[in-house]
Computed example of a mutant assay.
Amino acid sequence: MRRYETIFIASPTLTDEQAEELVKHFEGIIAEQNGELLKTEKWGRKKLAYEVQKFSEGYYTLFDMNAGPTLIAELERRFRNHDSVIKYMSVRMDEQTKAAERQKVRYEREGRRKAQAGIKERSLEEVMG
């Protein structure tokens, strides 16, 4: 299973109870599809960066989960088919973690190479004079 973050924005015409019910509905889908929900963050009603479907606000919710690609496909299909969801996005997080780890290893290797060659790291003040 891979780690994903999914954020969706619900219509601002929903009441707080309806928005809560919608979150529970999608949490149920994640559980039904054998996903492991790590965290649910309800950010509440916020202003959108740009208008989406003629709305300038929406209810933001973030799911942090371990899931397979079939669960993400099913969840996004349900987002598309639900009238109250105006925008959604899923991001695979373990790829970003791997990329950060590779960058860290690269910097450490470069630092060891420079130390063996006797190259001294210069500070910004030394470079700028």
Score class of each variant (00 low, 15 high):
residue 116 Q to D: 14
residue 38 L to V: 15
residue 15 T to A: 05
residue 39 K to Y: 00
residue 80 R to K: 14
residue 75 L to T: 06
residue 68 G to H: 09
residue 51 E to I: 04
residue 118 G to C: 02
residue 47 K to V: 11
residue 110 E to Q: 10
residue 89 M to V: 10
residue 18 Q to S: 04
residue 62 L to D: 10
residue 107 Y to R: 13
residue 91 V to R: 02
residue 120 K to F: 09
residue 112 R to F: 13
residue 27 E to P: 00
residue 80 R to M: 10
residue 82 H to T: 15
residue 17 E to L: 13
residue 78 R to E: 12
residue 93 M to T: 13
residue 55 F to P: 02
residue 75 L to P: 00
residue 84 S to T: 09
residue 66 N to L: 09
residue 123 S to V: 03
residue 95 E to I: 13
residue 66 N to G: 03
residue 128 M to V: 12
residue 76 E to Q: 07
residue 29 I to K: 06
residue 60 Y to G: 05
residue 49 A to S: 10
residue 55 F to D: 11
residue 77 R to N: 14
residue 23 V to P: 03
residue 12 P to L: 04
residue 18 Q to M: 02
residue 100 A to P: 00
residue 29 I to G: 08
residue 129 G to T: 08
residue 55 F to W: 12
residue 48 L to W: 01
residue 113 R to G: 11
residue 83 D to I: 09
residue 37 L to E: 07
residue 30 I to W: 01
residue 79 F to L: 03
residue 47 K to F: 05
residue 75 L to D: 07
residue 7 I to Q: 13
residue 96 Q to M: 06
residue 64 D to W: 00
residue 104 K to S: 07
residue 57 E to H: 12
residue 54 K to S: 13
residue 126 E to W: 01
residue 45 R to M: 10
residue 114 K to S: 11
residue 102 R to A: 13
residue 80 R to Q: 12
residue 20 E to K: 09
residue 68 G to T: 15
residue 42 K to P: 01
residue 127 V to M: 11
residue 103 Q to R: 15
residue 76 E to C: 04
residue 23 V to Y: 07
residue 116 Q to N: 15
residue 43 W to F: 05
residue 118 G to V: 01
residue 9 I to H: 00
residue 119 I to K: 03
residue 36 E to T: 14
residue 52 V to D: 05
residue 9 I to M: 01
residue 15 T to R: 01
residue 24 K to A: 15
residue 4 Y to T: 05
residue 119 I to S: 05
residue 106 R to V: 03
residue 127 V to G: 02
residue 88 Y to I: 04
residue 67 A to F: 00
residue 40 T to L: 06
residue 43 W to I: 06
residue 55 F to K: 12
residue 12 P to R: 04
residue 87 K to H: 09
residue 118 G to E: 01
residue 114 K to W: 05
residue 6 T to D: 12
residue 91 V to N: 06
residue 54 K to R: 11
residue 23 V to G: 09
residue 61 T to F: 00
residue 125 E to C: 04
residue 28 G to Q: 08
residue 80 R to V: 10
residue 52 V to S: 04
residue 95 E to S: 08
residue 11 S to E: 13
residue 89 M to F: 14
residue 45 R to P: 03
residue 56 S to Q: 08
residue 32 E to Q: 09
residue 20 E to F: 06
residue 69 P to H: 09
residue 14 L to V: 06
residue 128 M to L: 12
residue 86 I to A: 07
residue 34 N to M: 11
residue 36 E to F: 09
residue 89 M to Y: 14
residue 30 I to V: 15
residue 24 K to S: 15
residue 62 L to V: 08
residue 53 Q to P: 00
residue 37 L to G: 01
residue 121 E to T: 10
residue 122 R to Y: 04
residue 102 R to L: 11
residue 1 M to Q: 07
residue 105 V to G: 03
residue 39 K to W: 00
residue 54 K to M: 10
residue 125 E to L: 11
residue 24 K to D: 15
residue 15 T to G: 12
residue 101 E to S: 10
residue 17 E to R: 11
residue 62 L to I: 07
residue 91 V to H: 02
residue 92 R to S: 09
residue 50 Y to D: 07
residue 51 E to Y: 05
residue 15 T to Y: 01
residue 67 A to E: 00
residue 11 S to D: 12
residue 17 E to G: 11
residue 59 Y to M: 10
residue 24 K to L: 14
